[in-house]
Design a protein around this nucleic acid. Structure first.
Lengths: 108, 108
DNA sequence: TCGTTGCATCGACATCCATCGATACTATCG
DNA sequence: CGATAGTATCGATGGATGTCGATGCAACGA
């Protein structure tokens, strides 16, 4: 039987970093949080999320933590409240990771 | 106690479509498959993946199915072998979903 | 100092998901 | 037609993840 291939080379990159980033985004509720922060003029209080999302407060806190640990958002306490904002370069990091995956071969 | 907020509005979008797309990408091995297809000059045979990835054949097939059902890749049988390629517009769809999430508010 | 409020953490639970062995399906070869 | 090879599907399993009630912690006000 003939060979199937001009033996293609499989990407050797590990994409560990990029996968973590996409995992953090790949949730409907976390996307709503990110979209809110991206479009907000000012920082957003946690209570706004607990009020608007169909989730209980511990779950909102859980999602915010995941976004924090992914470096996509930052937070700051002001008195009793905690305000979140998009981390600088968050959008750019996702775009960069996307480019890393879909980078086309440069034709010689 | 004072109110915390200029009551911010939470994004009402559901992001169901976008979340599915990111879920399909958010796996290290699927990213390697996508990167391989993106950089390949020609279609890539399944056997190349089973040979190069640290996964058994059923697992590779499983990941390829997820990418297929997400519309990110297409496949074609040629004889005994099945060849995969990036679906047209795959890269653009991811970029578009990213923009949908990180869209900034247009200042009035 | 005490009660209250906002948020984070903990522990439990159900569900999803990545992985793999076994098996079925499809095409080729003899 | 039978044997073989490449790929997909099935069923099982262990680990990750989303969700929530209970609880802890920090800040404020009385």
């Amino acid at each position: 039987m003939q060979r199937c291939c001009p033996p293609a080379e499989v990407a050797s990159d590990r994409f560990h970093e990029e996968a973590s980033l996409f995992k953090a985004i790949a949730d409907e509720n976390r996307m709503r949080i990110l979209a809110t922060l991206a479009s907000a003029i000012e920082d957003v209080c946690v209570c706004d999320f607990t009020g608007a999302l169909p989730l209980n407060q511990p779950t909102v806190s859980h999602h915010l933590r995941i976004l924090r640990e992914a470096g996509l958002v930052t937070c700051e306490r002001r008195g009793t409240w905690v305000y979140y904002r998009l981390a600088p370069g968050a959008h750019e990091r996702v775009e960069s990771a996307t480019r890393a995956v879909f980078a086309q071969k440069v034709l010689a």
